[in-house]
Structures are given as structure tokens and as C-alpha cells.
Amino acid sequence: MTQRAWAAALVQSLAAATLLLLPAVSPAQGPAAALPDSLTGVPGDAARGRAIVANRQTGLCLLCHAGPLPEERFQGNLAPDLTGTGARWSEGQLRLRMVDARRLNPQTIMPAYYQADGLNRVGAAWQGQPLLAAQQIEDVVAFLRTLRD
């Protein structure tokens, strides 16, 4: 995709994010795009983040991803292994992937964890809620940053 198309896609998905007021994406586009600013101003807690990633009702990550959580059996194989993500991506890049991975790949199967509008037939129990709250996103990002090797 060209730089211009990336920019247009980002502007479009930003315009769609009316419910949650998201910080603007940094000028860097494509895979390098990032959300450098914390969603809450409170530093994430990596231990809490790990528990969210491990939990199949909260994080759901292990449905699709494998990761360095040896006590968790039956990890998915639909997505890249989370091992080493902290070495591959900056905090801001990880935050953007958590908030809305579609801004990088509109066809992605990874749900937008911090987005609650523009969805279709959301179950009554989940309506109007993003998958994770802002501080939970910060916790997960803090955990992912610890996955350096």
C-alpha cells in the first residue's frame, strides 16, 4: 500500500472512532505507526497484563496466539507467536496494535481491543463496551514490552 493509501485508511478509521476519543496516530505510517501516548497516564502493570493475556475470557489472546506462558496449554496458531514482541515493537507500536490492529491491516482477524462502535450485532451483554478497558490495554502493553527474547 502506498503512503497516501495508508494515511487515508488511518484517517478513515480515526473518523469511525467516535465513541472512544483516541489519541492521534503519530506521523509515522505503515507498520511503524504508533500511539506513543498512554491511554490513562498511569503506567501499565506487566504482571496484571500477563494475567489478562493468559485469561481466555478477558484477553482471549491465546485463542489465536501462542506465547511464552508455559503453564497455558492449547494455545492458538492463527497468529504470530508473541515471543519477542517487546523486542520487535515499541510501546507505542504495541499500543496501536492493541487499540485497533485494523489500522495496520484492515483485513486482520485480530479484534480492535479498544473500540466499541462500528460493530455489527454485538451481544446484549457486551454492547457499548470495548474488549479491554484503557488501563488493561496499558497493562498488556507493559507485559508485551517485557517479552524481549
Binding site: 482471549l60 492458538g76 492463527l78 482477524i109 479484534p111 460493530l119 455489527n120 463496551q129
Partner: peptide, 25 residues
């Protein structure tokens, strides 16, 4: 083909594009 739900996935994304893959267990 239409995405749905809070996870925003379509039947096709799982059953056409990822059949044979492992979703958790």
C-alpha cells in the same frame, strides 16, 4: 462473509480462511 459481534469476525474468516488452524484447543 459479514463480520459480527464484539470480536468482529465473520464465519468466512474462520471457516474459509483459517480452517485447519487451531483456535485455542
Amino acid at each position: 462473509m459479514q463480520r459480527m459481534g464484539q470480536l468482529n469476525l465473520s464465519c468466512a474468516q474462520c471457516h474459509d480462511n483459517h480452517a485447519g488452524g487451531r483456535l485455542g484447543s
